[in-house]
Simulated scan of single mutants.
Amino acid sequence: MPKKILFISHEASLSGAPILVLNLLKRLKQEKETYTIDVLLIRGGELYEDFAQISNNIIVAHYHLQSFSFVKRNLKRIQSIIFRKKENHQDKIDKITSSLILNKYNLVYGNTMESLEWTIPFYKKNIPTIVAIHELSFGIESTYPKEFVLENISNITKIIAGSKAVGDNLVTKYGADPKKINVVHSFVDSVLTIQKDKESLRKELGIKNDDLIVGIASSQELRKGTDMIPLLVKKIKQKTDINFKFINLGGTSKNPAVRCAKIDAEKLGIDDTLIFVDHNKFPNDYINLFDIFLLMSREDPFPLVMLTAAKLKKPIVAFEKSGGAVEFLGDNHGILIPYLDLDTMASEIIKLLNDSKLRESYGKNIHKRLEEEYSDTKLTAEIFHIINSLI
């Protein structure tokens, strides 16, 4: 008899955590053992159709619409529950989860810390729960008050931590039980899809053939450090006359952080060097174009774009004390910069810009580590083992 699993994702956006769990679902469907998979999306997004196609049933909870939809795989049958205005956030969670509990799931798998409050009702009904936590302190406490996490981190059967840094942080800061934690890093597919070749993309962006390209790919927010990019570009230009462009991939022109960065770039006189590219469905194309990949994050558990850069053999530069990048890039597999030291970062980038063999060496080293220690087959097998041990 098929095992019934409910997967909960905080959203269906084109970002690391939803992409990761979607890839996991696709692989789970290919397993010899049969699973019935339902999906609860706390919010929708661009990947909604992808989740709908892979699931037996899909549920979407829209806070701002104060309703949710239960959609069959053929997307034809829709049932709606309309919440009364006096019902609060917890009432909505209780109403949705109480109806889903009737489905008698063998397991509930929550993706990201935001799913915790949605998994607790199942845990209290003695249904095994897994919460895959990708966040460090800033991300966790942007979602819940610290007191809520301290009180409820024990209400999980098993925790999958996205990096050793995440697992250690859960234990030391929030009192999680180390025996409940398994560290399983993020992974990328064995084969990455590239839509546009480098030459075509250079022409599209107006980048000369002899310009080297430094770039980031991230959401535009304080935690990701994208506010520091204009100043970093200015420091690089002050230290070298080498021709380069800097691509900031992510966000949109409506994003306040992007608007602010554009103003800074203009005032610093580097707006002709800094290219802003909106968030889109083809980030691999742009990362493939980079000569150097940067992680500007103040805090990042184990970003998927870092793994994509490694897959594409790009040298990676990141800050120390920033999270999972440290364990991935350590032992000379990448360049780690003292925390928020933009002067040192600029100098290290210039060394890479001036030395193609050095760039190639770092790219090969990190690609080898990815293939040997962080293979998608190995990491998905670890997750499947955890799932099967509970059901």
Results as ranks from 00 to 15, higher is better:
Leu65Phe: 05
Ser137Leu: 12
Val108Gln: 06
Gln66Phe: 09
Glu31Val: 11
Leu65Tyr: 03
Asn57Arg: 05
Asn74Gly: 02
Thr129Asn: 06
Ser137His: 13
Thr119Ala: 00
Val60Gln: 06
Asp38Lys: 07
Ile96Thr: 03
Phe138Ala: 14
Ile160Pro: 10
Ile101His: 04
Gly139Cys: 10
Ala132Ser: 14
Val149Ala: 06
Phe138His: 15
Lys85Ser: 13
Thr129Arg: 01
Leu40Cys: 04
Ser142Ile: 12
His64Cys: 01
Asn111Ser: 03
Glu147Met: 06
Ile59Tyr: 15
Ile160Thr: 15
Lys124Glu: 14
Val39Asn: 06
Val149Ile: 15
Ile120Phe: 01
Ile58Phe: 00
Glu141Phe: 11
Tyr35Asn: 09
Ile127Ala: 01
Leu47Pro: 06
Leu41Gln: 05
Leu100Pro: 00
Ile54Tyr: 01
Leu100Gly: 08
Ile96Asp: 10
Asn57Tyr: 09
Val21Cys: 01
Tyr109Ile: 13
Leu136Val: 12
Leu136Phe: 07
Glu31Ile: 11
Asn126Glu: 07
Ala61Phe: 10
Asn88Trp: 04
Arg77His: 09
Leu40Ile: 11
Gly139Met: 08
His134Ser: 02
Gly139Asp: 06
Glu31Thr: 06
His64Gln: 09
Gln90His: 02
Lys95Arg: 04
Thr143Tyr: 02
Asp94Ser: 08
Glu141Tyr: 08
Thr143Ser: 12
Ile58Ala: 02
Ser154Thr: 13
Val21Tyr: 07
Val21Ser: 09
Tyr109Asp: 08
Ser67Phe: 04
Glu49Gly: 08
Leu150Asp: 12
Ile96Glu: 03
Ser137Tyr: 14
Glu151Lys: 12
Lys76Ile: 05
Lys95Gly: 00
Glu114Ala: 11
Leu40Asp: 10
Thr157Arg: 07
Phe70Gly: 07
Glu141Thr: 15
Gln90Thr: 10
Ala161Val: 15
Glu31Pro: 01
Asn106Leu: 00
Ala61His: 14
Asn103Gly: 05
Glu49Phe: 12
Phe83Glu: 08
Leu28Phe: 11
Lys104Asn: 08
Tyr63Met: 12
Gln90Val: 14
Leu65Ser: 07
Ser137Lys: 14
Phe70Lys: 05
Thr34Ala: 03
Ile59Asp: 04
Gly45Thr: 11
Val21Lys: 02
Ile78Tyr: 04
Leu20Asp: 13
Asn74Ser: 06
Gly110Asn: 07
Gln79His: 07
Ile101Leu: 12
Leu102Trp: 00
Lys95Met: 01
Leu40Pro: 11
Lys124Tyr: 02
Tyr63Arg: 14
Arg73Ser: 11
Leu24Cys: 08
Thr157Pro: 07
Glu151Thr: 07
Leu116Ile: 13
Asn126Thr: 03
Gly45Lys: 08
Val149Gln: 03
Ala61Glu: 03
Pro121Arg: 00
Ser55Tyr: 08
Pro128Asp: 02
Asp94His: 02
Ile78Ala: 10
Tyr105Pro: 00
Phe70Cys: 03
Thr119Arg: 00
Ser154Gly: 15
Gln66Ala: 08
Ala61Ser: 10
Ser142Trp: 06
Gln66Asn: 13
Glu87Asp: 09
Thr112Ala: 10
Ile140Ala: 03
Val108Met: 05
Phe70Ala: 05
Asn57Glu: 12
Ser115Glu: 03
Val149Ser: 05
Leu136Arg: 04
Trp118Asp: 11
Glu49Asn: 14
Asn103Asp: 09
Ile140Met: 02
Lys32Gly: 05
Phe70Gln: 05
Tyr109Arg: 12
